[in-house]
């Protein structure tokens, strides 16, 4: 169960990153959120067999990670943790779709393998972009941006409370896990019965805490609606960031960038 400790610390590390101060961190969260959403939509919108045309899109996450001074290894590790989901979705493609589409020398590549590869690329791009957004924008900032972009209040409030209390609750869980581990010498993992008991206890504690928080909210004038004070300023720099990247994505999407780049290189060396 030592993994629980490290998961908790990883969560904290991602959160810490978002409070750094770099060019990217200083951009208005709305601009970053919009760019990321557009990026994801564009990447997903490619046809099933798109492979090479996706490659230029790596420019965005790489540039962002570089400018924001993010630890790339750490982000890749996070990607790897969730990768099984993508792999399992696409794993049967090569078996179902056996039509040969490309001949590479004596190798025949079937449509299934290409669509599988395309899926993996999309996964890396989209989840990577989302991770980078989280690592470059403080969570309250993202909530604030969502609110300003007219996402329903209820969802935003849920996210705000999630962020506020996930650390409190994980810490509480951590204490329980440690206390159990210290008194169970031979068994590394709790049996199913113990596990259920611990989850039940955690649930009860959470319920009690929720009640106390509700009281605290009531005693400060909560009347069923949460209002927030918003202080965001959309500057020219943010506008530039937003429009440049969206234009870039449009170019990547509608022109064959590889071919253009290739021609350019050929012309230079001719």
């Amino acid at each position: 169960m030592a993994s629980f400790d490290s998961t908790f610390l990883d969560l904290g590390r991602l959160d810490n990153l978002s409070y750094n101060d770099t060019i990217i961190h200083r951009i208005d969260p709305r601009a970053k959120l919009l760019v990321t959403v557009v990026f994801i939509i564009v990447v997903v919108s490619f046809p099933k067999y798109a492979l090479t045309s996706l490659v230029p899109f790596f420019f965005f996450p790489i540039l962002m990670a570089y400018l924001a001074e993010l630890p790339v290894g750490f982000l890749l590790k996070k990607l790897l943790i969730v990768s099984p989901f993508a792999v399992f979705i696409g794993i049967f493609n090569p078996f179902l779709d056996r039509e040969v589409l490309v001949h590479l020398g004596s190798f025949d590549i079937t449509g299934g393998w290409i669509s599988f590869g395309s899926l993996i690329l999309r996964f890396v791009l989209t989840v990577g972009a989302a991770l980078i957004l989280i690592a470059t924008t403080s969570f309250p900032g993202i909530c604030n941006a969502l609110d300003r972009l007219k996402v329903p209040r209820l969802f935003v409030i849920q996210l705000m409370f999630l962020y506020r209390f996930i650390f409190v609750l994980t810490e509480e869980t951590l204490r329980m896990v440690r206390a159990r581990r210290m008194r169970s010498f031979d068994k590394k993992r709790p049996g199913i019965k113990q596990f259920v008991q611990m989850v039940g206890l955690l649930f009860l504690r959470t319920l009690e805490r929720a009640e106390r928080i509700y009281l605290a909210m009531c005693s400060r004038g909560f009347d069923g609606e949460i209002r927030t004070i918003k202080r965001l300023r959309f500057t020219l720099r943010d506008l530039l960031f937003l429009s440049l990247f969206i234009m870039l994505f449009a170019v990547f999407r509608f022109y064959n960038t590889n071919q253009i780049l290739g021609n350019l290189v050929l012309q230079v060396f001719r």
Binding site: P140, M160, R164, F165, V168, I213, L215, A216, M217
Partner: peptide, 12 residues
């Protein structure tokens, strides 16, 4: 309240 984690419920 006794526990500030109950009292402070907003994200910043």
């Amino acid at each position: 309240f006794q526990d500030p984690d109950d009292q402070i419920f907003m994200p910043t």
